[in-house]
């Protein structure tokens, strides 16, 4: 009892310290980026100080076109993620539960997975032009593998005893998936979701930057072409904030869905 109380107070003390230090770190980082261009460590024309970036971020927030671009980006990201998630789960469960299919597709998957998604850029440009569809193909392709690999592992992780129990009690195939396979693979699905979310954001921005489909990435490219340096940096900060929010969101979902689950999965983000 005494020991537990001692530990709790030590932990909160440590936590308080680490939060303070963390805030200090962020502040120091912003300060360094403010000072570095002003004293000429980096050219001020091409690397504006933090305060100027924040000012042009403020201006951006007042423009309707910024919000349109933001919504475009979010829509592509969410849509691509959803398609990848559904396709990955369905195909993953199929592959994972049918050993023959799994064995037959293993080599193909091993070969397709490491093909860089950006290799498809010229293809989608000639096939679909600078449209959302082009970017979506990249996003879905890259995010799909993240989900698929996790789901296949998850389904393979099903306890053989649980599987045999379900068979012995003559559960229907659907009931087996519902009560045995799905709960076991759920943590893997969630991990796949988290990894896919971050990869999908990367490819969304990439597609917009390189292909020119509408969104924040395209705005960045435009601003860079017209030498609007501060706007470039302000938009980059926006993508960083999007990234942080995406991380927070996926962690929140993970905690909600898996609050009952004792295990924590290893991280493995592999944008292909």
């Amino acid at each position: 009892m005494v020991a537990v109380a001692a530990r709790t107070s030590r932990v909160t003390g440590r936590r308080f310290r680490s939060v303070t230090l963390g805030a200090l770190g962020l502040f120091g980082f912003a300060l360094a980026l403010e000072i570095a261009p002003r004293v000429g460590v980096v050219p001020i024309d091409f690397a504006p100080p933090t305060s100027q970036i924040l000012v042009s971020l403020g201006e951006l927030v007042g423009e309707a076109s910024f919000w349109t671009a933001l919504v475009d980006t979010l829509r592509t990201w969410a849509l691509g993620l959803c398609i990848a998630l559904v396709a990955g789960v369905v195909i993953g469960v199929l592959l994972g539960s049918l050993p023959f299919v799994r064995a037959a597709t293993a080599t193909t998957i091993e070969f397709l997975r490491p093909i860089p998604s950006v290799a498809l850029i010229p293809l989608v440009i000639v096939l679909y032009g600078p449209t959302v569809k082009s970017t979506l193909v990249l996003v879905v392709y890259a995010a799909f593998w993240q989900v698929l690999i996790q789901v296949v592992h998850g389904v393979a992780d099903v306890d053989p005893v649980a599987r045999d129990t379900a068979l012995a009690f003559r559960l229907s195939p659907w009931a087996r998936v519902r009560y045995v396979v799905w709960p076991t693979s759920l943590p893997y699905v969630i991990t796949g979701f988290r990894l896919a979310a971050s990869v999908a954001l990367i490819l969304t921005i990439t597609g917009e930057l390189v292909i020119g489909s509408p969104g924040i990435g395209k705005e960045i490219d435009n601003a860079q072409q017209s030498n609007a340096v501060r706007t470039v940096y302000a938009l980059i900060v926006v993508t960083g904030i999007l990234g942080v929010l995406a991380n927070l969101l996926t962690r929140f979902v993970e905690r909600r869905v898996l609050s009952w689950h004792p295990s924590t999965r290893g991280e493995e983000v592999t944008p292909a």
């Binding site: 963390g22 770190g25 962020l26 954001l201 942080v244 991380n247």
Partner: peptide, 22 residues
Amino acid sequence: RSLLEPVLEFLRAFPPPVLVPA
């Protein structure tokens, strides 16, 4: 670690391709 972790989390969250224009 406490000092730098939030900064690193923030920097990591950037989709790396936006670095190209910068």
